[in-house]
């Protein structure tokens, strides 16, 4: 019994100290002011983190929009409400699916790569040598990646939403024969810029910060061995995915909880 209590206490202390380290890490790195050199580093990371995630976001957004239209049509047509297909596709994507699925894809593609990259730098003493040269790795390595993730995920979310709506159009209008005018006009009438689009963007900003924070912290804090890198990469994907899903509920409750 005592052994279990000791183990529980140790695990709790480890978790608390890890959260504390992660918090300090975020504060120290996010306030690194961008210099001209920092801007170039950030641009390079925007390419690595953002541009290189566009393909996976495009393909996923297209298929999710198409599936949404197909499923939505089979339900709505039973009520004679197939004109509302555009509204259903757009609201589902803008409020929920675009921010959440883009963030999950981002965690899997860019998050895991960030953890592995920073972890390998740590294992090969590149971070230590940078410190010894008098360069703060938080400023040079972590901050550009953190900001790149924070900025690029909302952009990827917009791309996801736009392509998803177009995918819904392809299936709903071009294939299943929903009237194009009602697809677009119902969407235009029901989607509110502030309530829906802006709230979706706020979600993706929060997800961008949290996913990238988890990814860079796991890379920076890992045990510098091959096993350590493998575990940290897995942890990034698991923690980031769970954080996105959990935060999505909290944010949805805050944003839309009083509508009913």
């Amino acid at each position: 019994m005592t052994r279990y209590l000791t183990a529980l206490g140790r695990a709790t202390l480890d978790t608390l100290s890890s959260i504390g380290r992660a918090g300090l890490f975020l504060v120290q790195s996010i306030f690194c002011l961008p210099s001209r050199e920092g801007f170039h580093l950030w641009l390079r990371q925007m390419h690595f983190v953002g541009v290189m995630s566009v393909a996976i976001v495009l393909v996923s957004g297209l298929f999710i929009g198409m599936v949404l239209a197909l499923q939505g049509f089979t339900i709505l047509v039973g009520f004679g409400a197939d004109e509302a297909l555009g509204q259903m596709v757009a609201l589902s994507l803008v409020r929920e699916l675009a921010p959440v699925v883009a963030a999950l894809l981002f965690a899997g593609r860019a998050g895991s790569a960030l953890t592995a990259e920073i972890g390998l730098m740590k294992a090969t003493e590149q971070l230590t040598s940078m410190e010894m040269i008098g360069v703060d790795p938080l400023r040079r390595i972590v901050a550009p990646r953190l900001w790149a993730g924070f900025v690029s995920l909302p952009i990827l979310t917009v791309i996801f939403g736009v392509v998803g709506i177009w995918g819904g159009y392809l299936v709903g209008v071009e294939w299943l024969g929903v009237y194009a005018g009602s697809y677009w006009s119902n969407m235009q009438d029901s989607v509110n810029f502030f309530d829906d689009v802006l709230n979706g963007m706020v979600k993706s900003l929060v997800f961008g910060l949290v996913v990238t924070w988890i990814a860079v912290f796991q890379g920076y804090d890992l045990i510098p061995t091959s096993e350590g890198i493998s575990r940290a990469t897995t942890r990034t994907v698991v923690y980031a995915s769970l954080a996105v899903l959990g935060l999505d509920f909290v944010l949805t409750a805050l944003m839309f909880g009083d509508l009913g």
Binding site: L120, Q126, E131, G134
Partner: peptide, 29 residues
Amino acid sequence: FKLRRRMGMLFQSGALFSDLDVFENVAFP
């Protein structure tokens, strides 16, 4: 960090920056 600018360190593994070539590694500091 200011003090470290007056110090150099040769690491056991070399610890060269893997994304920079030899010239840029030496030019880095």
